[in-house]
């Protein structure tokens, strides 16, 4: 039996199906429930309706917190992308031993458990008056997302042929022109990947936001957190679906960017 290709093929099929069910079933069920016509979380729903999306978009609590999340995400992702890309470029050209140390320091927020970062930033930001402010949340999200940009762009720069830039310089291009016309177009897919990563991480972030937000400045994830702990109606399923679709779109966009640059899909 062990030698039969049929047996192994069937076994792999079973494994694959079980994996897909385990990974996706909960998300699919939430997606379906969000279109339910019932008044409570039941599956399968007795009928379909858009009532929970209407409730969500007509309830100022959800619209306000969604807008707050976007107001944090957009600046945080842009700043993280610019700073992370700049740092990746500088590090790729550094020959000293310090490059390794600096890289490790910049990657640290990814390695340190986020609860520690959250508590530490909260403690200090309270003293600095950044607690409960949009700028405090943006700064904190830049810290959390910068390592993702740095590592994606660095991975691209590691395989980037530096002679192309030298060639541009030899043809008389000033450094900035060579960067803008040669380097940037070649690394732009990974810069895009990094920015998408930063956007998703920021939009989905809960732990740091939980510490830094107040009822006045509150991202949607914190609002969801406090509602889940109370009683839940399908509005939360609608919010969850919005968050899930946002991640899915970003993942697909990333796949597209990777395909165009010929990289394998991955983390």
């Amino acid at each position: 039996m062990f030698y039969s290709a049929k047996f192994w093929g069937a076994l792999r099929g079973v494994i694959n199906v079980m994996l897909v069910v385990y990974m996706l079933a909960p998300l699919v069920i939430i997606f379906v429930i969000s279109f339910s016509s019932a008044l409570y979380l039941t599956f399968p729903p007795p009928g379909l309706s858009l009532q929970w999306y209407e409730k969500m978009f007509s309830n100022p609590t959800w619209t306000r917190t969604l807008v707050t999340s976007l107001k944090i995400m957009v600046p945080a992702a842009i700043v993280a992308t610019v700073l992370g890309t700049a740092a990746a470029l500088a590090l790729s050209r550094m020959e000293s031993k310090w490059a390794l140390v600096i890289r490790a320091v910049l990657m640290a927020p990814l390695v340190v458990p986020v609860i520690i970062t959250a508590a530490a930033i909260f403690g200090v930001f309270r003293i600095w008056g950044l607690y409960g402010s949009l700028s405090g949340l943006i700064l904190a999200h830049v810290i959390l997302t910068l390592p993702y940009v740095l590592s994606t762009v660095s991975a691209n720069l590691a395989v980037f042929d530096k002679r192309l830039e030298d060639a541009a310089a030899n043809c008389g291009a000033p450094p900035w022109t060579a960067f803008r016309r040669v380097t940037l177009p070649l690394i732009s897919p990974s810069v895009m990947s990094g920015m998408l990563f930063a956007m998703v991480i920021s939009f989905d972030e809960l732990v740091v936001s939980l510490f830094l937000s107040t009822p006045r400045v509150r991202p949607v994830t914190v609002q969801m957190w406090s509602n889940i702990k109370g009683d839940t109606d399908p509005t939360i399923a609608a919010i969850a679906t919005v968050l899930f679709l946002f991640s899915l779109l970003a993942l697909l966009a990333d796949g597209l960017a990777r395909r165009r640059s010929g990289r394998e899909p991955g983390l």
Binding site: M23, P26, L27, V200, D204, T232, A240, L243, S247, P265
Partner: peptide
């Protein structure tokens, strides 16, 4: 990768 990219909050709620 999908669960990896999806908010932990959404997955736990599900």
């Amino acid at each position: 990768l999908i669960p990896f990219w999806t908010s932990i909050l959404v997955r736990s709620f599900a």
